[in-house]
Amino acid sequence: MKGRNNSDKSSRRKFLRKLGTGIGVVSLTGVPGASVIAGSKTESGEKIKLLSPEGRLVEVDRENIRPARETTDYIKEEARKGLHGRKFVMVIDLAKCRNARKCVEACQEGHMLPKDHEWIKLYLLQDDRNTAPYWLPRPCFHCDKPMCVSVCPVGATYKRDDGIVLVDNQRCIGCKFCMTGCPYSARVFNWKDPEVNLPPGQAYDPETNIPPVEGTVGKCVFCADKLRRRELPRCVTACPMGVIYFGDLLEDSITNGEETVRFSKIMDERAGYRYREELGTLPSVYYLPPFQRLFPFERGLEDVDEETRLRYRDAGPR
């Protein structure tokens, strides 16, 4: 998977990933809008090549193909349900982070975000004069008691059964109440036309929030589209230090792409915690304290450009 040019493929795959749940495969080779019914009895013997949800070319009998409901409505309906029997969780090891910003870049590229939209943000924090400064990557926390979802007047943002909180930007009216509701500043607003060039007829998918819409809210989606393909979120795979772990809480297992560990064990051994537990939002993102850090925090200010350095000019004890 590494380094492959994914840009056109990912957009294509968005249509295609529903095979695992039963329906919805779209053709790559001239059978637009077709899908496969698993286990159909009759066969014509005539095979047609289709792209599977995993992105592989498969042969399917013509009889088993019927037009897919690959409309935006269908995608949105699936995106509201979430993945059955999963509860996603992220663990961020603050001891390893050195503000390399690869997570930000991968996220922006993968979600076609403009440069000034950061769904995952890097903060330089210092709790007090006498405590150590540290880097804190902050994605959306996908809280179990999400304030943003509670306050949404139209149900544009919602919590799925697998724990992911998404935004339907075709429903969002842009009241920004969720942005004031979120205590973690995790949401961004499309203040102007995002000017994203997309192939015409591209269906909207809340799992990527592509295409973005002016006057609506966007935020980290835990790469829900990749999870559907059993792939790790973009920030996890992009991180050169392996800072970000991701997994299914129910399986008690998290991985950063290199090593796989038990969630309960690492929480126990590394004294994992959640940011501002007292707020009672029950985040799905946990942090491991920056104990015996791999890099001095100053490293994070060395390899970045001037503009990035500028944003931390006022950082310090609060």
């Binding site: 007047p153 149900g155 429903r171 009216i173 920004k176 607003f189 002016e214 006057g215």
Partner: peptide
């Protein structure tokens, strides 16, 4: 004036959530 998408204002009436203070 503060709402990003005035064209969807009627969503407040067709998709109301009474948990929201805006509703």
């Amino acid at each position: 004036f503060c709402i990003g998408r005035l064209d969807r204002l009627y969503f407040l009436f067709i998709y109301p959530r009474i948990q929201s203070p805006i509703t």
